[in-house]
Design a protein around this nucleic acid. Structure first.
Lengths: 73, 73
DNA sequence: GTGTGACTTTGAGTCCGTC
DNA sequence: TGACGGACTCAAAGTCACA
């Protein structure tokens, strides 16, 4: 049963960001996204659009599709 | 050399939709998205957000991540 | 059955800040 | 280092008529 896609995405993003040893601030800065917005995305409160998904994926050095995969629990 | 993520997503969506034998009209209706909006997405003119990506993926019966993979061209 | 332009409303995304 | 809020701006979302 698929839960909230936004929460799922946020969790996955946190996991990938930490695995690269980045802070929210650094990831936000390097991908050109507002820090407070990124915080909201990671908490599943924001409905991020495709271009920003790609920006984050690029910064993390992974394909965008892998950002949409389900987080490990 | 496919670089525009929106165009890439649109192409991929068209391919998947046709492979399921659906019209834009039917896909739009079943996923609860406006047809003219869907048309814009398929042509890479709309920056679709995560929740709508999931709606389309659900209707197509595929994981959202597979919608973000690159189209075969 | 699809492309497109014009339009309105809602929320995506920014920037300031505090805890 | 990250959660969270207020106050903004502009684009995503959605609708329509017509090609």
């Amino acid at each position: 049963m698929q839960q909230d896609p936004l929460k799922s995405f946020g969790l996955r993003l946190v996991q990938l960001r930490k695995s690269k040893g980045l802070s929210q601030e650094k990831l936000a800065l390097e991908s050109g996204i507002a820090r407070s917005y990124l915080s909201g995305v990671e908490r599943g409160q924001r409905n991020i659009a495709l271009l920003n998904i790609h920006k984050l994926a690029d910064t993390l050095g992974i394909p965008a599709s892998s950002l949409l995969e389900l987080p490990d629990d």
